[in-house]
Amino acid sequence: MAVALSGCATVMNGTKVDYSSDTKPGGATVTFTDGSQCTTPCTLEFKRKNDQRADITLPGYKPTYVLIQSKLGGGSFGNILLGGGIGAVVDGTNGASNRLYPRPLIVQLAPEGSDQEPMLLDKNGKVVMPVRQHNDSVRVDVAKSIGADLAGLNRSGQVSGSPAQ
Rank of each mutant, 00 (worst) to 15 (best):
T43H: 04
P41H: 07
L81F: 13
S97D: 11
C8I: 06
Q116C: 05
S36M: 06
A151M: 04
L121Y: 10
T57A: 09
T10M: 01
N13R: 12
Q69N: 13
M12P: 13
S70E: 09
S6A: 15
A54P: 05
R132C: 13
G152S: 08
D141F: 12
L67M: 09
V142P: 06
Y19T: 07
D136C: 00
G161A: 15
A88T: 08
D22H: 12
F32H: 14
G7K: 00
T23G: 02
Y61T: 05
D51A: 02
D91Q: 09
G152F: 02
S97V: 11
Q69Y: 09
S21C: 15
I68L: 07
L100V: 05
G157Q: 08
F46I: 05
A88E: 11
P118L: 04
R99H: 14
L82T: 05
S76L: 00
I86H: 06
S6P: 07
D122R: 01
V89M: 15
A54L: 04
P41M: 00
A110H: 13
D34N: 15
D115Y: 15
G92I: 08
P41I: 11
L153M: 11
A110S: 15
I106K: 10
K71L: 11
H134W: 15
K144G: 09
G7T: 12
L72P: 09
L81A: 15
N50H: 08
T40S: 03
R103L: 03
M1V: 09
Q116Y: 09
R48F: 03
V3H: 13
S21H: 09
G161V: 01
T10W: 10
M12Q: 14
S114L: 10
D136V: 03
V90G: 01
G26H: 11
G95M: 04
K49F: 03
K49E: 10
